[in-house]
Design a protein around this nucleic acid. Structure first.
Lengths: 240, 240
DNA sequence: GCAAAAGTGTTTGGGTTACACCCATGC
DNA sequence: GCATGGGTGTAACCCAAACACTTTTGC
């Protein structure tokens, strides 16, 4: 901080905001898988390569708002969860490219509902990729996506993140599916039920989902309440 | 991202790097307490108030390097631990002040050794404050310090952070003192020993610290190895 | 010997894991 | 009835907390 408004002439870096957007979509064999929308670059450097959606920060725009805006511009969607990931700004971010001005990117990560994500139109310049089969991306964007994946996987275990992938109500099996897709491993249905019920973060609605070919499951919703997303937080950032 | 090098004329924000620096110093009754060095502002806005050390990013400087540099400039010290905290950039960061240009601060947090910190010279414009008795700071710096405190407290429990407050070798009692000062509560010596020994992160040196008025304790050091501080990380950032 | 901290042992309780089993529905 | 997931019960295990106890030094 300690701003230096007086000698604002020395420009040292451009500021941009980018977002890693996650959605869950059924893959070829019906299981849910993490997907990420990318945009094709249409100028140097890295012209033609896939990159994270992003852009410069508008004059009177908060950082979060900028992330939400370029999410809307790329996908037409509103995020159901949005959080700052990290600021990437090392001078060698676009190594190997003819030198342009250094860009500091403040990167966010976001979740969008599976249902909503299905409506997004893809074209030649916007495409959804499976999170574990990404092409080579522009800049350091592969590193950034991995970083975001780690954060998502780590955080789903202790925060009410999964909500971002679901609708208002959902069955425990659907919730478990989300966890399994994100974590990449199967979870014991019985234990999962008890754990998540004991957490107090979800409540039964009393309604049931009918029309399945088995016993109709209870519908739940997330407890609406508390957490002011800022202040009194608890975060981390390990290296290990 | 998706840099926009072409129309670089539209400047929307200044970029700065600031650092929350932590050291442990014995307080009036000999117990260790967290302290933070602050600098006095010498121009508007917030002229005369205390603020986090920081400054603009130099042209060919990595973000981490900028943080380390302004740490050195303020305290003359090298950090024993340094990590990015968060990017603060909302337009209302300096509310109530005559409007200047918006500043986006990429904030780091750092640890410096207790021994080293003792050598820092204080003057009218640099002063160490106890972390739980800070004055009103410039900008949103009180919020930032709280954010950093939460991160430190949370992270010390599962990462080898305490090393940043200690010398090469240390006794388990000294290590425990660090934990107690950071967490603000007493820990059971026996259980602490077993926990930390079982973690495999420290190793006995075979030497003992002599000259105490009781049984001489074993000296330990941190296992030097592995973790490349970037990539393959595991982080978080809860809100709850 | 006494004080004080180093260091060890043991019990307990809570929570997680693994897995068996019953229940309610569609067909 | 049978298949399928919904939902419940439970024993084994692991780990952390509490706390008693022994050891080794200085004085």
């Amino acid at each position: 901080m300690t701003m230096a408004p007086t000698h604002a002439g020395t420009r040292t870096a451009t500021l941009a905001v980018s977002t890693v957007i996650f959605a869950l979509s059924p893959n070829d064999k019906g299981a849910l898988a993490l997907t990420i929308p990318l945009v094709r670059r249409i100028r140097a450097p890295f012209d033609g390569m896939w990159a994270l959606p992003g852009g410069p920060l508008a004059s009177h725009e908060d950082l979060d708002a900028a992330a939400a805006r370029n999410l809307a511009e790329t996908t037409g969607l509103e995020p159901k969860y949005l959080e700052q990931l990290y600021a990437f700004g090392n001078v060698d971010r676009s190594v190997g490219q003819l030198q342009t001005e250094r860009v500091v990117s403040i990167v966010y990560w976001a979740l969008v509902g599976s249902k909503e994500a299905r409506q997004v139109v893809e074209d030649d310049n916007v495409h959804w990729f499976s999170a574990d089969a990404l092409p080579d991306l522009a800049f350091d964007h592969n590193i950034i996506v991995n970083y975001a994946l780690n954060r998502l996987r780590n955080k789903i275990e202790y925060a009410r993140i999964a909500h971002g992938f679901l609708g208002e109500t959902f069955t425990l099996a659907q919730l478990r599916e989300v966890y399994e897709a994100v974590l990449g491993r199967a979870l014991d249905p019985g234990n999962f039920r008890r754990t998540v019920e004991a957490s107090g973060e979800i409540v039964a609605t009393g309604k049931r989902l009918m029309g399945t070919k088995h016993r109709p499951p209870q519908l739940y919703r997330y407890q609406r309440d508390l957490p002011t997303p800022f202040s009194s937080e608890k975060q981390e950032n390990i290296s290990e």
